[in-house]
C-alpha cells in the first residue's frame, strides 16, 4: 500500500510540474522581452535569456509621465476600497441567499442570475448616462460604486455557504449571540478561505479594469495604472512589443507582491496549514 501511494504521488508531481511549466512559459517570454530592445524581439531568433540586456523599456514606461506614482496610488485606493465594500456586500447577500429563508428568495436569486447573462457591452452607455446624471463621471466613485457588488461573487459565496457546516451557528445562537453577532463574529471568520478567494478576485478585477476607467475618467491625475499605461502603449507606428511587455510586467508586479505577502492569509484552511 505504501508503494502504491508513492507511485500516485509521483504522477501527481509530474502533472503539477508540467502544468506549472505551461503556466510559466508565456510569462518567462514576456519578462524576457521586457528587457530586450525591440529589434531583437521581432527578429524571430530571440532567446529566453536576452542577448542584449536593457532597462530602456522600463525607463521609458516609468519616464513617460511624472504621474506614474500617482496612478499607482489611484489604483491602490480604488482597488482596496472597492474590495472591502465588495467583501461585505457580497458575503452578506450570499449568506442571505444560502442560509436564510424568506419570501421571494428564489425570485431574487434567479433575477440576479439572469442579470449576469447580459453582455456588458450594451450596458456601457446606459451606465455612462446613469453616472453622468448622478454627477459621478470623472470621479473615483464612478469606478467603485457600479462595481460595489459582483453578482458572480454573490453566487460564489452562496455556493460556499451551501456546503458550510450549519452546527457552528446553532451552537453560537444557543450561547446567546444575536444574529448579527453570529454572522460577523462566527460565520465571517470561518468563511475566511472563500472570502480571501473573493477578495483576491475582486482586487484583481479592480486593478486590471480598463473599460470603465477609459470611459469614465478624463483627468490624467485620476487615471488608474492600467489606463495610464495603456495611454502610452497605444502607438500608431506599430505594436511596440518592448514597451507593452514592460507595461504588462509593471502592472502585474504589484499584485504578485501583494499575493506573496497575503499568501499566508489566503486559503488558510486549518487542515492545509497544519500539515507540513
Amino acid at each position: 500500500m505504501h508503494k502504491h501511494t508513492s507511485i500516485g504521488k509521483i504522477i501527481l508531481y509530474v502533472v503539477m510540474t508540467i502544468y506549472a511549466l505551461l503556466t510559466l512559459y508565456p510569462f518567462l517570454w514576456a519578462i524576457s522581452a521586457s528587457f530586450e530592445p525591440l529589434k531583437e524581439i521581432v527578429s524571430g531568433n530571440m532567446s529566453l535569456w536576452p542577448k542584449q540586456f536593457t532597462f530602456a523599456n522600463y525607463q521609458y514606461m516609468m519616464g513617460t509621465s511624472a504621474q506614474f506614482p500617482r496612478w499607482f496610488m489611484n489604483s491602490v485606493f480604488v482597488s482596496t476600497v472597492g474590495t472591502v465594500i465588495n467583501i461585505f456586500l457580497n458575503t452578506m447577500a450570499g449568506y442571505a441567499l444560502a442560509r436564510l429563508s424568506f419570501p421571494g428568495r428564489q425570485r431574487i436569486y434567479y433575477g440576479m442570475l439572469s442579470l449576469m447573462m447580459i453582455p456588458t457591452q450594451v450596458l456601457l452607455i446606459p451606465n455612462y448616462l446613469i453616472l453622468m446624471n448622478l454627477g459621478m463621471l470623472d470621479s473615483y466613485s464612478s469606478l467603485i460604486l457600479p462595481s460595489a457588488i459582483n453578482i458572480g461573487n454573490i453566487f460564489m459565496m452562496r455556493q460556499f455557504f451551501l456546503s458550510f457546516p450549519k452546527d457552528v451557528e446553532e451552537a453560537a445562537e444557543i450561547d446567546g449571540l444575536g444574529r448579527i453577532q453570529v454572522f460577523f463574529r462566527i460565520v465571517f471568520p470561518l468563511a475566511r478561505p472563500s472570502i480571501a478567494t473573493q477578495a483576491i478576485f475582486t482586487f484583481m478585477g479592480f486593478w486590471n479594469n480598463f473599460m470603465q476607467p477609459m470611459l469614465y475618467i478624463t483627468t490624467p491625475s485620476k487615471y488608474t495604472l492600467t489606463l495610464g499605461l495603456q495611454s502610452f502603449t497605444n502607438q500608431q507606428a506599430g505594436v511596440r512589443w518592448d514597451h507593452s511587455m514592460a507595461a504588462s510586467v509593471i502592472s502585474i508586479l504589484p499584485i504578485v507582491i501583494l499575493y506573496i505577502i497575503f499568501n499566508k492569509y489566503f486559503l488558510q484552511g486549518v487542515r492545509m496549514d497544519n500539515e507540513k
Partner: peptide, 21 residues
C-alpha cells in the same frame, strides 16, 4: 485647456456624444 486622450476612439466618442459631454 483640458486634454482627453482617446484610446478607443469609437466607443469613447459615442458615449461622450450621447451624454452631451
Amino acid at each position: 485647456v483640458t486634454e482627453k486622450v482617446y484610446t478607443d476612439f469609437n466607443t469613447q466618442i459615442q458615449a461622450d456624444l450621447a451624454g452631451h459631454k
